[in-house]
Nucleic acid binder design. Structure first.
Lengths: 136, 136
DNA sequence: GGACATTTGTACGTATGTATC
DNA sequence: CGATACATACGTACAAATGTC
């Protein structure tokens, strides 16, 4: 499974494995991942390695983690369509803590925001996992 | 400085402090942050706490970390303007490992991508820290 | 509501590897 | 080459959230 002598760090090797299990549907959207302790036993690595693995998958937006419960594969959310007005400009970046709270972005999720601007002023900030912009 | 008995975890308290130092210009864009060891001494916390602090600031896109060198405040990059065609749709998400490599996104940086679609097909994927979308 | 097991979060220590200067 | 700095990875302990009985 995991080769401690590989160039590739153990936590990345495990991330590759889980990413593959997600991609193939072995772990479908919404499915619970094994607990940290279970992963430790299954793959013969320490807790720090598991924690890094899950952190990497969170950063890729593939899983979310809830304290006292566990991690699960992210479930595609229904999209809200937002019209960008003519002359509008769009950027994307990571949200501030305030924006996370306002938009209800799960603390255990890594989700960017879409920023719509018009005339140099910000016209809207949207959680990217639930939003699709349209250009009429 | 940091109160170990506060409700707020030490690593978040330190993140607040550094975030403030960045916002006020005490640590301007491009400035080097103190090393992990220096931060340990300055704030009287352990390495794990520093690690988490820096991870949080990276996730917010505020700093980038380079191995063997250190962390620094991100520098705003010149924007490339990309025109979205009429009828185009835009999403944003975190990049895959492949996309990170293709777009040259620093491994120590957390940067989303802008995905431009037209007619259900992906027309372009852009690193969000260097791109602004426009609609003529 | 309480008691309990499970699970993740936080935070320390230690050691070794590797990249940069 | 050495010094510095971050990365990886193990261990340990306690705190806090969750779900179940």
């Amino acid at each position: 499974m995991i080769d401690p002598h590989s160039d590739r760090p153990a936590y990345r090797q495990l991330a590759d494995i889980l990413r593959d299990r997600i991609a193939t549907g072995d772990l479908p959207p919404g499915a619970a991942l094994p607990s940290i302790k279970a992963l430790e036993r299954q793959y013969g690595v320490g807790r720090e390695t598991i924690r890094r693995t899950l952190a990497a998958l969170r950063t890729e937006g593939l899983v979310v983690t809830e304290r006292g419960y566990g991690s699960r594969v992210v479930d595609e959310q229904p999209r809200v369509y937002v019209k960008v007005p003519r002359g509008g400009r769009v950027r994307s970046r990571m949200p501030t803590e305030t924006e996370r709270a306002e938009l209800g972005i799960d603390p255990g999720a890594v989700v960017p925001v879409l920023v719509v601007m018009l005339g140099g002023r910000v016209r809207g900030v949207y959680a990217a996992d639930r939003t699709e912009l349209t250009f009429a």
